[in-house]
Write a protein that binds this DNA or RNA. Sequence first.
DNA 1: TCGGCTATGGGGGATCACCCTGAGCCGACC
DNA 2: GGTCGGCTCAGGGTGATCCCCCATAGCCGA
Lengths: 220, 220
Amino acid sequence: METQDQAIRVVIVDDHQIFRTGLRAELGPELEVIGEAADVDAAVEIIERERPEVVLLDVHLPGGAGGGGAEVLRRTAGVPGVRCLALSVSDAADDVVSVIRAGARGYLTKTASGAEVTAAVVRVRGGDAVFSPRLAGFVLDAFGAGTGETALADDELDRLSAREQEVMRMIARGYAYKEVAAELFLSVKTVETHVSNVLRKLQLSNRHELTAWALSRRLL
Amino acid sequence: METQDQAIRVVIVDDHQIFRTGLRAELGPELEVIGEAADVDAAVEIIERERPEVVLLDVHLPGGAGGGGAEVLRRTAGVPGVRCLALSVSDAADDVVSVIRAGARGYLTKTASGAEVTAAVVRVRGGDAVFSPRLAGFVLDAFGAGTGETALADDELDRLSAREQEVMRMIARGYAYKEVAAELFLSVKTVETHVSNVLRKLQLSNRHELTAWALSRRLL
DNA sequence: TCGGCTATGGGGGATCACCCTGAGCCGACC
DNA sequence: GGTCGGCTCAGGGTGATCCCCCATAGCCGA
C-alpha cells in the first residue's frame, strides 16, 4: 500500500456527464480522480488498466450485457486492490441487494453531498462498509441477521457463473443465439452450451420461461 | 462572459447537490445561474422572487405536496416570463406526460451533455419545445396524433383481426404453436398463418420482437 | 357478380432452439 | 502434481419456428 499522504486514486463510473463533472468538483482534495467511464465496457477497461483504489460506481449503467453496475463488479472481481462504492439515485431493495452481492463495499444515494461521498470513499479505502443512513437498517436485515442465507439472497442466481448470467440476460431479452455470439465474440455453440447450463440449473425448459423468470426477479 | 448583451437567467432545481454543481460547471457562458433549489417549496419561492427566464427542473423532487416537478410547474403557472425545461434520469412515459401536461416546454434526460442542455435552454427561451431525440416520437404519439382523448389508441393493433389478436397474445406470452392450436382448437398450420400475418402487419421479424412489442403496449 | 378480406388448412424448406456427448484450456485449490 | 470447475468449442440429432408457395370457404360491399 502507498503512504497515507498520497491522494486516494478514484475512478468515477456514471452515464451522466453532468453528474461526473459535479462529483469531480465536489470531491475533497484527499481524492484524485484518475479516470471516468460512462458505460459497462469502458468501466471494466479503465478499472483493469488503472487499478484505482476506489471506484464510485453508478448502479444503472448502459452497455455490456445489461447488467449495470453489478456487471462491472463481477467482471472486475479479479482485479486486486480495487474497492467499489455504489452510488445511485435508487434506494430500491433489489438494486441494493444485487450490487452488494456482486461485491460493492458500500452504497450511497445521490442525495449525498460531496463531503459525504469523500468521507465514504476514505472509509471504504480503509476497509469499512458504508451505507446511506436509511439503508443501514435494511442492509442489516438482509445480510446480517441470522445465517446470512436470507429470503432476499438469490441463491439460484448465484449458482450461475458470471458468463452464464451475462448470456442469460441477453437470451431473456429475446436475443437470438447468433446475436449473443456476435455481441460477446463467442461461437454460437458456446452460447448454446451456456444457455443449456442455465436452463438446467434453473430447472426451466425454454427461453420463454427464462424470460418470465428474469422478469419476476427484475433482472431486466 | 458578457460578450453578448445579456446572459439568459437560469434557475436550477434538483435535489442532488452534486448534480447542481455539475450542471453549473457545464453550462455555457451564455447562461447565468441566478439561483438553485433542492425541493418543491424552495423552487416555488425562488422562481416567484427571481423570475428566471428558464428553469431547469428535475422531475423527481422532495417537499411540497409530493407532486415533484409537476407541482412546481402548477404552483408557478401564474408567474409571467418563466419557461421550464424538465430534466430527469427517467424516460418513463408517465413522467414525461405528467410534466408536459403541467406546462414544461421541454424534456431532457440527464444523459444530455452540458452543451446539449445549454442549447436546449437557448431554444426554450426562444419559444421552442425541446425533447431528447428518443422521446420526440413518443411525445408526438401521445399528444399530436388523434384526438388526444385516447392518447394510446392503437391503430397498429386495430389492423389485426380479432383472431389474429387472440393468437398474437398467446404467442407473445410464450405459448408454442401447438399449444395455441390446442387451446383454440385450430390446426398448427392455421396458427402459423396467423402469426405470419401478424408479424408482417406489425413489421416484426420474430416472436421475441412480438413479445417486446406487446409488453411495450401493456397488452399482457 | 366480382373482388377483397378473413379464417381455415396444407407442402416444403430454411433457420433456429434445445439437448446430448465429448474435448481442450486454464486457474484455483488440496 | 492432480483434481475440479468454469469457459471455450464441436458434431449430431430432434423438434419448433418462420417464410414461401398454395387452396377452400364464407362474408360483405361495390
